[in-house]
């Protein structure tokens, strides 16, 4: 009940991640009118973390932000800069230590959207342009990013349930997913026994944590994606991103669409070709549809001259 999109630039310095993803998502907004989200990767700095939170804005956000600042203080974070934007509080900190412990502490006291050195997730109810109006997504440039539009069936369309999902406890991992994981509870309990926490009952969050857990043991993203096709039941087409990679996996039943387009300068993936064509109006694109049960990754580091 969704549309997904992803883009990675091969060129030095990257491209207009925000603007391009807005165009792509606007092109498939019919697949999900309720909420829209973006995972945007910019240039990160070692030892620094970029944190985004949802806050309660009734009091101008004071109570929420105070609670967050207290936890940041508990973990000896140095606040470098901070701002509020729409219903979000965005803060850049200097942090060294156990990220998972820190992340769970933040999760227990606040609503975390994303944590990463270069990742920022922006998501809220409404269409791509609605979210851009509040959060100025179009201003974001960077190396790569993911996007998602969603049709919700829960009683209250909450921004928390919007995609992308951040892999709670793991820096810079984000996921967007179209489909349904049918062995969700089995997989979730397995991960919970290993000490992982889940914030929602959304099966897409599970994929994010599942992949991040594998990568934390040194498994390459590509191998983690290969395993996911065996381990996850159901119908899925999902995109995952890390600090310098994007990848996809598709279930063996080929139920959820995905179209891919690659040039010398970029790689773009979307649920429908109409989204890709938004980036290249008036041009017939030489696209390809990944086969059922396949996966792949692209890494910024493999492209020359882009460091």
């Amino acid at each position: 009940m969704c549309g997904i999109a992803g883009i990675m630039y091969k060129t030095p310095g990257g491209g207009d991640t925000g603007k391009d993803l807005i165009d792509m998502l606007d092109g498939c907004q019919h697949r999900g009118p309720d909420s829209t989200g973006f995972a945007l990767y910019g240039a990160g700095h070692d030892g620094e973390l970029l944190l985004r939170f949802m806050i309660v804005t009734d009091d101008g956000g004071t109570a929420s932000i105070d609670a967050i600042r207290k936890i940041l203080g508990d973990y000896n974070c140095e606040i470098l800069d901070e701002e509020t934007e729409g219903g979000n509080y965005r803060v850049r900190v200097r942090f060294t230590g156990d990220l998972q412990k820190f992340a769970y502490a933040l999760e227990h006291g606040a609503t975390v959207i994303s944590i990463g050195s270069s990742l920022e997730i922006i998501k809220d109810i409404g269409g791509a342009h609605d979210v851009d109006d509040v959060y100025h997504v179009a201003r974001h440039t960077g190396t790569h990013g993911l996007g998602h539009v969603r049709l919700a069936t829960e009683s209250d369309v909450k921004p928390e349930a919007a995609h992308p999902f951040w892999a709670t406890g793991f820096s810079d991992v984000a996921i967007v997913h179209n489909g349904q994981i049918t062995n969700y509870w089995k997989m979730r309990r397995r991960l919970e026994r290993k000490g992982f926490e889940f914030r929602t009952d959304n099966d897409s969050e599970l994929i994010a944590v599942y992949l991040a857990e594998k990568m934390s043991h040194g498994v390459a993203l590509k191998d983690a994606l290969r395993d996911s096709i065996d381990d996850l039941d159901g119908t899925f087409s999902f995109l995952v991103s890390t600090k310098d990679e994007i990848g996809y996996a598709k279930d063996r039943l080929a139920v959820k669409p995905m179209v891919l387009y690659e040039t010398d300068d970029m790689i773009a993936v979307a649920s429908e070709e109409v989204s890709l064509n938004r980036l290249f109006p008036g041009k017939a694109l030489n696209t390809m549809e990944p086969a059922p049960g396949t996966y792949n990754t692209w890494s910024r580091s493999t492209y020359p001259n882009n460091q």
């Binding site: 009940m1 969704c2 019919h30 697949r31 999900g32 049709l151 069936t153 179209n178 489909g179 349904q180």
Partner: peptide, 12 residues
Amino acid sequence: VLGADDLVIKVE
């Protein structure tokens, strides 16, 4: 029609 996302395109 394999989900709400396809269904809306079918209706159209």
